[in-house]
Amino acid sequence: MFSRSVARLIIARPSPASAVRALATSASSPSAGAPSRFLAPAAKHNQLIQRAFSNSAALAHGGKGRPKKGEGITLHFKKSNGEIETVEANEGDDIVDVSWEWDLDIEAACEKSIACSTCHVILEDDIYDKLEEPSDDENDMLDLAFGLTDTSRLGCQVKVTKEMDGTTITLPSATRNLRVDGSKPTPH
């Protein structure tokens, strides 16, 4: 018998079909006489490349769809670079679903298995206090989260509720802040 963890693993695997689909939409012209099997097809992959710029997990998972405009729950995400992105979410989806749907750049390395802490989010006090307490497993992973706060949660364990309408969810910045002005390319 397969245990729950294995079942979860198999379900969580991005379907090869979706990856193939992504390739199919992009590969238009064949490689111009690739001399070696180590050469990547040199075709124009604009679509794929465009999509690859966004969170690649979203490519595989695609999120769970968006609510009709004006009918969803409005969430503001404060990203690690300080920008705010406002999206609409379905009630009952978790924060990682919302991120996959809207390319919000939550990593979710373990794909919601409570085994990585890369989906760490910071909630507003009142929203945090209304949620059920985190499980032991979630707390074990929160132990390892960067920039842990009093209102930190794992995004994959927090479901969107009506009460969250209008709230701001902060994505902690764990990387050294390198995207400062100095990193802009110099014109030449």
Partner: peptide, 17 residues
């Protein structure tokens, strides 16, 4: 742990690039 989150939270609503 530090309570940075409480200061971090914001209610700004503009969508920036």
């Amino acid at each position: 742990a530090p309570t940075a989150g409480r200061q971090l939270s914001t209610s700004a609503t503009t969508r920036s690039s």
